[in-house]
Design a protein around this nucleic acid. Sequence first.
DNA 1: AAAATAATTGAACATCGTTCATAATGCAAG
DNA 2: CTTGCATTATGAACGATGTTCAATTATTTT
Lengths: 200, 200
Amino acid sequence: MSRRSDHSREEIREMALAAAETIASEQGYTGLSARKVASAIGYTVGTLYLVFDNLDDLILQVNGRTLDHLHAQMVKEQNQHQDARERLLQLGHTYIRFADEDPHRWEMIFEHHLPEDHETPKWFLEKVARMFLLVETGLEPLAKQHSPQEITQAARALWGGVHGICILAVTRKLDVVGVDSVQDLSQSLMDNYLRGFTGH
Amino acid sequence: MSRRSDHSREEIREMALAAAETIASEQGYTGLSARKVASAIGYTVGTLYLVFDNLDDLILQVNGRTLDHLHAQMVKEQNQHQDARERLLQLGHTYIRFADEDPHRWEMIFEHHLPEDHETPKWFLEKVARMFLLVETGLEPLAKQHSPQEITQAARALWGGVHGICILAVTRKLDVVGVDSVQDLSQSLMDNYLRGFTGH
DNA sequence: AAAATAATTGAACATCGTTCATAATGCAAG
DNA sequence: CTTGCATTATGAACGATGTTCAATTATTTT
């Protein structure tokens, strides 16, 4: 039964991305397959390849959406605070909470790798950079006495630091249990780093 | 040609681990397959399953060896210093240098996941804990005024932090190029954190 | 020399990503 | 209303994956 115009390309694309998101969220990166996505939206494998270059492309799109979602949430929750310091700390909080609430979806951003000869498309790198810029902007008002380069460096260190705690915790390599412990760890990292960086 | 006693179980095991290490190092986690390992040591797939439970088991063994190697290297290079602070900083240095020199082998430790119903064996978790203990022990002399819990917390934050910078750099999500920049970032993280933690 | 035991094989199975000739459908022209 | 064309979707096919296990071969024992 080959249908036509039941759904537009754009609709199929949207359905596939949503289905992939669900599957990845429930079964993790390794549980995601082209056939599963296809059957979840009532189409066959071949159709997916009319809409995406390949599975890597599809996953990259899903990850892009996840980054968008995360970014929006971070902006939103950051804006619930006035104090510059609390705004910055909130970024870490939101990041960790998302990773805890949807670990598979969050992990897929970092577990997925393109084949070595292909380089990550610019639109994706920009989404990553946009996220990092949030930290840099949040740090700025706290570091008026530092040069832009120093602030960039500090933002990288901070984001990397929070991310590292997060990933080691999610993959159970830090011997901590519960989100709260991870939040405490991240808080400790940011607290002490900021105290050192700004000199109180 | 089915041979017998050409190699003992233990020898085959050793050969397979060495071969897997090489393949993983050269082609990365996704380039590693049972058939490749088998043919690299002149046996067939079936033989591997007489020696390992499955591929996950094999990979776990390889990762265990990598952790051993990394741990030994960190201990060795740490002991080139007397000053407690430099000893601690050296740990981060060595960690990052190893990740840079053999990224595939290092990444595999963190990319590999057991199926969700299986939990990581204790012997592996102990190797991870042993690595973390190195940081904790290195931190101790610098934090005499802190409680053991605080030191443990700080060690987790520090290791997580360095690891995060490292993984984001290796997967090109930090927009930095060259090992030296990563070393600088890590150094900045530790410097400022320690300044905050110890109060100069 | 024959029988028992142990070691190794490799074909078989289900699943994977990917391709593409084929079939089915909707639409426009006659 | 039929015919033909262009579009859309299919699913069988290919090579690769992890894993199993009856069958085969080599060694040891009787």
